[in-house]
Design a protein around this nucleic acid. Structure first.
Lengths: 281, 281
DNA sequence: TTGATTTTGGAATATTTATTCCAAATCGGC
DNA sequence: GCCGATTTGGAATAAATATTCCAAAATCAA
């Protein structure tokens, strides 16, 4: 093949490496393609593997893998590996081991539980970063920014989220109201044209929340929803849906990702400069 | 050389490795000691280095390092390295890049904010795992388990945490009451002998929370506290203190770590056998 | 000090691992 | 189906790396 652009040199950072990988990944013979795919999916193992291992797992001959390294701009595998070994700085001298130790304290012990929730939290955050729908997020921010008043609603385990959202929004001088459906201190009269709803609900979806959202919709208000699945009842009712893939530990939800997303949403709305412009639907 | 205890085999996990390292670190000749010290401080580099490199950085001859590996129970360096290479799991595939991309969306954009909060969350969780005081945690669980009724108290940004704690505890049939100081729907009469307090407060510490805790103490009730610094006003009043090193982004707190710790605490209390039946779906 | 014992460094060797090279296989246009 | 170009796998080679060994240095006990 015509490996043109013997481009000014090998990638010097992992980011560059990725770019190049993407740039080259198409129009590549079968075996080389296999290398590319496997490397993309297992980039982290490069630092700790041999050509033979990598080639085997990619299902190609070592020499093929070797060629792949050269196509990526390196003189050979060793040079490529050096890149990954150098940029290999991990926070786990203590950390991972510490988690292991905590867990070792015995299943069911409080320390072990903390370790489990910490892990669930990490996974959730990771999943959030991976699956975040930026378009939906932007829409949600726009929608809430335009609102005269944001009605925050959430019950049961979504209630703390709603409460914190309301707290943060208020702190940022965004007018909003927290609907506390549990206490019933709520009526629908407060929903006015120009307002917007921000609803949070997870399975099993609380009927009270859904009811309020329905009311909002039929009053013509836009609804931003934070929920757990794109097909949830809440999602069907909402104008814009933000999905949070929360990882459970046992029956308990870590909510870390929900927290991160919610805060970001609130801060984005609170700091948006367009916040006084007209233009409402 | 007296390498006694050719102990039943090489370490098979990083945790075992640490134990053994500690066990052997004293009474070791100078150069071997140097190896031990350097390895302890750079455990993560073992997976990606050669004997020569490691030996050089430790300031010893390669052969000395070799001996050190054997004293650790391995047949040689390669076997030791294999342990670290294998136990190197990946928090890394396309995740980091994804975060970078989100941030790239532009400072201040909602996506970038999500990325920031996700990172703050990760850091917080990590810090929690590192700094968790297991003794205090055990004490707190014991203290709360013995209580007839747990009074959960927290205001402002601690309120969502308090609310969720109360929710989870209730779900697990632990009798508790959420003190909603903001609404003032609270009086001190409900504190009875045999009860316990669970207080959450972060800087700047809400006077209402502190006041309630003081009242509890003078009524002789034990107090478990979740707070941000060991020297916080709340910490001084509490029987047992749990510190959560939360990482802020801007003026906003991610609360991920608080969440993990709180949940673990609640679940530990709820499933403790000294109480009535645990219930998890 | 002296001599027995342990520790050390470096040179010699064994092993693993990367890299090259070429003949066979595959592909694509005709 | 044939020919030229490209791609592939495996054997041969080169390089790096681990490992062993031993004589010299250091240590310690008398």
């Amino acid at each position: 093949m015509d490996t043109r652009l013997p481009p000014d040199g090998p990638p010097t950072t992992v980011a560059e490496f990725r770019e190049r990988l993407a740039a080259v990944s198409d129009h590549l013979p079968r075996r080389l393609q296999a290398c590319a795919v496997h490397v993309a999916a297992n980039m982290d193992r490069i630092a700790v593997s041999t050509v033979a291992e990598l080639a085997a797992k990619a299902g190609v001959a070592p020499s093929a893998f070797m060629r792949f390294c050269q196509i990526m701009g390196f003189s050979g595998f060793s040079e490529m590996q050096r890149l990954f070994r150098d940029s290999y700085a991990r926070p786990w001298p203590d950390y991972t081991t510490r988690l292991d130790n905590l867990k070792l304290a015995g299943a069911g012990s409080a320390s072990a539980l903390v370790a489990e929730f910490v892990e669930a939290g990490h996974l959730s955050l990771e999943a959030l970063a991976k699956s975040l729908d930026e378009t939906a997020l932007t829409e949600a921010v726009a929608l809430l920014t335009k609102a005269d008043c944001i009605h925050v609603v959430g019950t049961r385990r979504a209630f703390p989220v709603a409460a914190y959202l309301a707290y943060v929004l208020e702190k940022m001088s965004v007018s909003c109201s927290l609907h506390d459906l549990v206490r019933g201190s709520d009526n629908l009269d407060v929903l006015r044209p120009g307002d917007a709803l921000l609803a949070i609900s997870f399975a099993p979806y609380a009927p009270e929340t859904l009811a309020l959202v329905k009311a909002g919709r039929s009053a013509g208000l836009p609804v931003a929803a934070i929920t757990d699945r794109a097909e949830s009842p809440l999602a069907r009712l909402a104008t814009t849906v933000l999905c949070v893939p929360e990882v459970d530990f046992g029956a308990f939800r870590s909510l870390s990702a929900t927290w991160a997303l919610s805060l970001a949403l609130a801060v984005a709305v609170g700091t948006d400069e367009r916040r006084s412009l007209p233009q409402r639907s």
